[in-house]
Design a protein around this nucleic acid. Structure first.
Lengths: 187, 187
DNA sequence: ACCTGAACACCGTTCAAGT
DNA sequence: ACCTGAACACCGTTCAAGT
């Protein structure tokens, strides 16, 4: 049994959104890629909002397991955060794509409510994970201060990805993350 | 003599892009706001790319003079960077809008070449300005290190804006910038 | 359950035509 | 120079109909 239509729709849609955003997501383009008609796509995802929400949900789920694995083989903060940054880097390398939730955050105004919920959850998952990584430190930081720093690291990496993508140049991402490190934003 | 149609088109378009992005920019919506037909908008800006480029050019020009004034009344680094951050903050406060070039960076794939050029120039203007601010420091940093830090500060602030907008919460921006400061990314 | 064909009201864009 | 009306090929979406 081959991968079913629903999964192929999700895969095609994911690639489109990471490359061109939620607004540029087209049922007709998806249909062309999958080999059915656009009305057929609607059978699996009644509205564009349903597709977007499913997309973001799946994306966040994958992030959860990926980050879980990364935390399991935690050795030290620097290497772990380097691996974390390299996840965002790899999106840029793949045809200058962006984090699905990063690009969707920019389109906040056009997102249906249930898509927004998933975008928020992605941020939460990342911030919570970064909190865990940072709590390995022994600098007696309180939980609130850790949470703010975690949010800052997440925002900084999203920003590095956004600016590097705008320039169409991965080395901008590398330089920026390097500067974050030497400035002391993270280990 | 009142403001002419061309300027009113640019003003309406600016508001739309900062709220919903380049892709969501609609000639028919602009026409409705200005009080003419969509074909009339094309008389002033032949293509959507022409309008986008003019928009980004005007936006960057305004940034140039704004940043110039900010540098003229430079007193110390911390206050100057606080004023700088507050520019990006004010966009969020105005109906959760974004930096025009930030949101356009996310749409990089869909931008015509001449729009991309302007988005790049905005980044350059900001980075160059930050370099000047940072060069007031007396820590004997070389030019390359200053430039990387300037790029990092710009990317970090864009990221803070992006994430805060995604959550629809200005306080996320404030917390993040505060964390950048305590982490030592900037004074 | 899964998909198509045809229709709806929208796009950006073009172009001939009006003033 | 400035704008309109009408047309073009596109959208997302709906829905009745086919298998």
């Amino acid at each position: 049994m081959t991968t079913d239509t629903k999964q192929r729709i999700l895969a095609a849609a994911r690639r489109m959104v990471q490359a061109r955003g939620y607004n540029a997501l087209s049922f007709r383009d998806i249909a062309k890629e999958v080999g059915i008609k656009s009305a057929g796509v609607h059978h699996h995802f009644p509205t564009k909002g349903d597709l977007g929400a499913a997309l973001a949900r799946q994306y966040t789920e994958e992030a959860v397991t990926l980050l879980h694995d990364l935390l399991e083989r935690f050795d030290n903060e620097q290497l772990t955060l380097e691996r974390y940054a390299s996840i965002f880097r790899s999106a840029l390398v793949q045809d200058n794509r962006m984090c699905l939730c990063g690009i969707m955050a920019a389109e906040h105004h056009d997102l249906p409510a249930d898509v927004r919920v998933e975008v928020d959850r992605f941020t939460e998952v990342n911030v919570d994970w970064l909190c865990k990584v940072l709590s390995f430190r022994e600098d007696g930081r309180d939980a609130e201060s850790i949470k703010r720093l975690a949010l800052a690291i997440f925002a900084a990496i999203e920003g590095a990805q956004l600016v590097a993508r705008g320039r169409g140049d991965v080395s901008v991402f590398d330089d920026t993350v390097q500067a974050y490190r030497s400035a002391g934003l993270f280990a």
